[in-house]
Design a protein around this nucleic acid. Sequence first.
DNA 1: TTTAATCTACGAAAACTTTCGTATATATTT
DNA 2: AAATATATACGAAAGTTTTCGTAGATTAAA
Lengths: 129, 129
Amino acid sequence: MTEQKENKPTKSELEILQVLWKEEPLSVRDVNDILNKDRKVGYTTTLKIMQLMYEKSLLTRKNQGKKHIYFTNVNEQDIQKNMLDKFLNRTFNGSAYTLVMEALGNYRASKEELEAIKQLIEKIEGGQK
Amino acid sequence: MTEQKENKPTKSELEILQVLWKEEPLSVRDVNDILNKDRKVGYTTTLKIMQLMYEKSLLTRKNQGKKHIYFTNVNEQDIQKNMLDKFLNRTFNGSAYTLVMEALGNYRASKEELEAIKQLIEKIEGGQK
DNA sequence: TTTAATCTACGAAAACTTTCGTATATATTT
DNA sequence: AAATATATACGAAAGTTTTCGTAGATTAAA
């Protein structure tokens, strides 16, 4: 059973999770290098945060010699779902509709994606009759 | 010209903005009473945060006798748009599609809302050809 | 095998946000 | 008018998260 407290990663933690979800497992060095493509972060800063994440069970790790390589220990969809729930309530008063309209209105989606969304809507409409 | 720095209200600030957007103007006392329906917050805590928001120009205020009544000084849609942008990038890797699918899949929308979303999609598809 | 590079662990400073106590002023009530 | 209630202002404590310096171990290179 997954811990039920650890669904609210901090900003930095989430940043690291994103990196790992994309190409885990990685060493602290690897993660830090990737983060530094966007912004300057010290190595020990990244190390420290990953250690804290390990203690919180957001990450697991294995020994590779004396070094550690890290794996995520939480599911991307689960985290996204939790964050979305908080965000929706906090910023959009719980209105998925407003959020969706904003998102579609302001960000590009491919033809295929738009079609998939339409299909989902039709499926929902069919179900709710 | 609106300040370009003040688009990232903190959690507490956003909570207060939500209250005011719904029924401004309000006194600190009013806001605090409303907040306390959900969770216990001290009066001076709310006062302090609203004072900080005033200094940051998130709020304006008028004197009513010696008391103050507060008004929001930022637009709800603007703030939502900014927060959505950060959230989308931070949590969904910038994929509006994934976000929309998650939102529609997990939260209720009325028949009218679903129709409106479909229409928006068709409008977008028409435009992008 | 000394030097240089790289790693983990850890403590604590720095930065940011929230919370609250207290002083002071002004109304309201008795 | 004295006592009570309610305001604002403000400083500082408390809570949270991020950042970094330093020590000690290990590996790689000169």
